[in-house]
């Protein structure tokens, strides 16, 4: 017995596709100076954002993104049924502490850098399942909070390999509703955790690429679609080398996506910003999706895209104990409908 809204092995489809009625993005200064800077709602130049710790600053950015999304939709927090949020910090404190201030019924998520897409998929399920009228989804990351938790003190002098990525400082929020105007979510493909034996924590792109490629392939097989059904296939934060790997792996599976394949981590910075392989972090796919991609849909540049949030499910402890790095990728199909 197959569930009525399940399509193939890993894909779900939505009977009444939930609408993304508003999105908001708050980004740090480096992201603001990048090529997508103009598509973000707010640029925060002070890494502390007026707070006394970076953790508080990150929480504040997440709060700002959620408030901005509500404001754009002319709604109050009381109008929202559930808040789904997550971030990279231990015990997802940015999300938990934001939820403390928002006082919306809260479900905490952890999908590492894939959290935005995990949230979009789950939010759409809650709405199409009839459990919610409106769901607010938010994620954030901050270069300094991630660096101190996962790696080294920020002022420590060291040389990073070219495969290393730069954690995006930023937060994105999306407000989903059962009805309204805006792009809709039609399908979601939930990824499997995959580990191809990569152990180098300075090379997350290689660890995530197999999971992303697997989810893309599985989505195309589940739906029977060809890559050219989408105007854009975009991954979260594979970086320059991870993107090449994913493209090659998908090709081995029999699909050519080269001409329409992009990666949020590659787009967010330009080559002169000294970020090595590109951006990463929950904030990476969040600000690019909530800022740039939504604008592309609004202006009609793209009609339909599939975004694949990618994440590595490691911890500093697992790396030190010599574990290899498991990756995950969740895909969500977002399209602009006529008159919507």
């Amino acid at each position: 017995m197959v569930a009525p809204k399940k399509n193939g092995l890993q894909t779900v489809w939505f009977q009444n596709p939930p609408v993304i009625i508003s999105t908001a993005s708050v980004a740090g200064s480096r992201e603001g100076e990048g090529p997508l800077g103009k598509t973000f709602d707010k640029i925060v130049y002070d890494t502390y954002y007026g707070e006394n710790t970076w953790e508080k600053a990150e929480k504040q950015m997440m709060m700002d993104a959620m408030k901005k999304a509500l404001q754009k939709a002319n709604l109050q927090k009381e109008d929202v049924d559930f808040m789904l949020a997550g971030d990279l910090l231990n015990q997802i404190i940015s999300a938990g502490f934001s939820a403390r201030s928002m006082s919306i019924p809260f479900l905490g998520l952890y999908g590492a850098c894939s959290t935005m897409y995990e949230g979009l998929a789950l939010g759409a399920m809650l709405i199409d399942g009839g459990f919610a009228e409106r769901v607010l989804i938010a994620t954030s990351s901050h270069y300094n909070t991630a660096e101190r938790q996962y790696r080294f003190p920020t002022e420590l002098g060291l040389q990073r390999p070219m495969t290393a990525q730069w954690t995006v400082t930023g937060a994105g929020a999306a407000l989903l509703a059962r009805e309204g105007s805006g792009p809709v979510i039609t399908h979601a493909t939930i990824g499997k955790v995959m580990d191809m034996g990569i152990g180098d924590a300075q090379d997350m792109g290689s660890a995530m690429a197999p999971a992303a490629a697997d989810t893309i392939t599985c989505h195309l097989q589940d739906t029977g679609r060809k890559p050219d059904y989408y105007d854009l296939i975009i991954t979260g934060d594979l970086g320059v080398f991870g993107k090449k790997l994913a493209e090659q792996l998908v090709r081995q599976n029999g699909y050519e996506i080269r001409d329409r394949f992009a990666d949020c981590g590659v787009l967010i910075y330009n080559g002169s910003q000294d970020v090595h392989a590109g951006g990463s972090g929950c904030g990476c796919s969040a600000v690019v999706t909530c800022g740039y991609l939504m604008e592309q849909l609004r202006t009609g540049m793209y009609k339909r895209f599939i975004g694949i949030g990618t994440g590595v499910l490691l911890s500093p402890c697992s790396v030190q104990q010599g574990e290899t790095i498991p990756g995950i990728g969740h895909a969500v199909v977002i399209e602009m409908r006529q008159g919507g």
Binding site: T163, D195, M196, D203, F241, Q248, L249
Partner: peptide, 21 residues
């Protein structure tokens, strides 16, 4: 789930694409 052979093959692809220090 994933055989050692698959991991070795993947490691080869990664080494082709990954920049040398």
């Amino acid at each position: 789930v994933i055989s050692e052979k698959q991991k070795r093959e993947y490691a080869e692809i990664v080494n082709q694409i990954k920049p040398k220090p």
